[in-house]
Design a protein around this nucleic acid. Structure first.
Lengths: 225, 225
DNA sequence: CTTGACACAGAACAAGCGTTCGGTTATCAT
DNA sequence: ATGATAACCGAACGCTTGTTCTGTGTCAAG
């Protein structure tokens, strides 16, 4: 039976149904449907009608088609459930009284990783040997980093003024996250929260930079005390 | 010319080259290559040899194949450059002296959105009408949220004890991010940093909850003063 | 020297798949 | 009432694509 609806601005019901089906199919199967699968699901018995609708969605800018391959369609914008990822290994926890492990020192299992949308990273960090640490305890409060936060770092032994670094301070027996500055006679490790005092490191004291912080992620899905 | 290498444990050079090609092809084209394309790039002249290698990568658990469709292959684990995304609209900025806009009040353009890996969200938040706000200024320091941070929220008018909420306080003419608690005669809005004092709201005062914070993201790719 | 396993090869084939073509029906404007 | 357009249709076709089959060369072990 026909379901003719006069065209108006925007999408018809059939268009929207097709878009929804492509998105859900792709979420489940990790690849787009075929024209025949779209037809079966959307009760369109002819492949040429599905093709007719896909052409319209393409003209509306909601879809792009690749005519050279089968299943050559991709949703544009926020409807697309797939995107570029970086997978960053979580090497363990970071806490005050223990030195930080970095990739060359830590055993890395692929199961312990976090996924970061590539678009959330600046191009400087993409593809670098990023690693992640999860903060345990309240000792990073002065860095605006809370218990449970995930800190994404790239390995580094040196830093420039203003960069946030993860540092093992041997004399103080602690790991810290601070903004790094060179001073005349040493280094200043400046807390992110101006209410806290900086740490001054003399040149003859050790300064073991493990990495530069590129991102902090806080999941707020658990209740606090 | 033959390039025979006796099989040993783990991958040979050809295997690794094929994996690398599939990853880079997929990052660029957003769909897997065909067996012929793999062959062309990896200098394998026979589709049956590519098939032979793909079968081995599948047995090694590095790849999964879908025999029912063309280009039916997917990298497993950290090699896979594509993953499930949530795209969250960024509705604007959040700053102390202005009320928060929420999705029904704000114009939303698809260009202003952030991508969040679905795996970073708990299942409670997936698919909800999430929105994002970018913090401007230092007024959220007591919430462990810094200037420039992105706050992901889900719309809410009510909260339970311990949840972090975004609240517009009309009497104080300010927006704030705090942990929410009900008290006998009103509400307590508790800063994330214990060094700050809570805000007590009497029952007769307005409490305009706009959303619950589900994630905070801090990109640390810019230098501070 | 023989045998078995592995790594490779080319050719043929079949299936999946999208495009094209010619068509019908419904709706709308004139 | 008529013509134009949109929405729909089935059939046929051709291309892409992966699988299967038969084969060769190399190497290690017996």
């Amino acid at each position: 039976m026909m379901m003719m609806v006069r065209k108006s601005k925007g999408l018809g019901e059939r268009h929207q149904k097709i878009l929804d089906f492509i998105a859900s199919y792709q979420r489940e199967h990790k690849h787009p449907p075929s024209i025949r699968e779209i037809g079966e699901h959307c009760k369109i018995s002819s492949t040429s009608v599905v093709n007719y609708y896909l052409d319209q969605l393409e003209k509306e800018g909601l879809l792009e088609r690749d005519r050279k391959i089968s299943r050559g369609m991709r949703l544009i914008g926020n409807s697309n459930p797939l995107g570029d990822m970086l997978r960053v290994p979580v090497l363990g926890v970071i806490q005050a009284g223990e030195p930080i492990l970095v990739p060359s020192e830590a055993a890395f299992t692929p199961e312990d990783s976090v996924e970061i949308a590539t678009s959330m990273m600046s191009s400087k960090e993409k593809g670098k040997d990023l690693f992640a640490l999860q903060v345990q305890g309240d000792s990073m409060i002065d860095a605006m980093v809370n218990d449970g936060d995930i800190v994404i770092l790239k390995p580094a032994q040196e830093a420039r003024n203003g960069e946030m670094v993860a540092v093992w301070l041997n004399e103080r027996n602690e790991t810290t996250l601070k903004y790094f500055y060179k001073e005349k006679d040493g280094y200043r490790l400046q807390p992110a929260n101006p209410a806290f005092k900086p740490i001054m490191i003399k040149k003859n004291e050790s300064l073991d930079i493990k990495g530069k912080v590129v991102m902090v992620i806080r999941k707020v899905d658990r209740l606090v005390a």
